[in-house]
Nucleic acid binder design. Structure first.
Length: 259
DNA sequence: ATGCCTCTGGGGCAGAGA
């Protein structure tokens, strides 16, 4: 089966490309992030017409996550147990569901903004809640994976120029250490294979010709249980989806499994 | 050409993205 994750930067703005990609790549499960829609305004009918069930979770202008599946969609959980608030509000950043033979969690980890910003402390707390939730699902009977936009580059090689990130979020030790909590929960990273370049970046800023220069970051990640990881036959970034007019600033991460 | 930022809400332009 094929499982994928894609930060679409507005499902409304990206709908034509998402529908076309569903038809061409035919993932069995697609985890979406940064919907910028509400649960109710997600264009579910367009997706259903292609044979996908939809579980969306969004509150409006920012954030929002969804899971699309054509192999079943059950036991949906919106948000995380013991999830922290930001400025008094719970944000739509995680949704979990069982899709046929696997259980998946689609995540949009908080950005953090600056390391001394309240949003960064929130990012670390949120990752702690994610690890707790993931530990529970990892102990379940199904192969399980957490995938989506982590807003963390796991290693120094995962940004185009480390000097450009001096003192910045996405590369700091504390957020990378928060990824270790997922590893302690029994999950390991499924790293996509390199395609055109050595590092399979997943994000390129819209500004300053970042994509043509390959000034990218690898921040959209997949963490799976041992059974999930052992079933992986291929993993890659579909960087063609970053090309052309009307692209998201993220490309889909695709994982093929023998399950 | 992989091409100089894009999205949303609201009705300006500010905030967020990373």
């Amino acid at each position: 089966m094929r499982v994928a994750a894609w930060n679409v930067n507005s499902i409304t703005a990206r709908l034509p490309r998402v529908l076309a990609w569903l038809e061409s790549a035919r993932p069995d499960v697609l985890c979406l992030q940064e919907l910028k829609s509400t649960t109710d305004t997600f264009p579910a009918e367009d997706v259903r017409a292609l044979g996908y069930e939809v579980a969306a979770y969004g509150t409006g202008r920012w954030n929002g996550v969804a899971i699309l599946s054509r192999v079943g969609l059950d036991d949906v959980a919106r948000g995380l147990p013991d999830e922290p608030d930001y400025e008094g509000a719970r944000e739509a950043r995680a949704i979990t569901a069982t899709c046929g033979p696997v259980r998946v969690c689609s995540v949009y980890v908080p950005n953090g903004r600056e390391v001394d910003h309240a949003h960064y402390a929130y990012k670390l707390r949120w990752l702690g809640a994610l690890a707790e939730s993931a530990a529970g699902d990892a102990a379940g009977r199904l192969p399980y994976a957490v995938l989506g936009d982590f807003n963390i580059a796991p290693t120094d090689a995962d940004v185009w120029d480390l000097a450009a990130f001096e003192g910045a979020t996405h590369v700091s030790a504390r957020e990378r250490a928060a990824l270790d909590l997922l590893r302690e929960a029994g999950l390991s990273e499924v790293v996509p294979r390199a395609l055109k370049y050595d590092v399979p970046f997943t994000y390129w800023d819209y500004r300053q010709l970042a994509f043509p220069k390959n000034n990218g970051m690898r921040i959209d990640l997949v963490f799976g249980t041992p059974v999930f990881a052992a079933a992986v036959t291929d993993a890659y970034v579909d960087r063609d989806e970053r090309k052309g007019k009307g692209a998201s600033d993220h490309a889909p991460v695709v994982v093929d499994l023998e399950i």
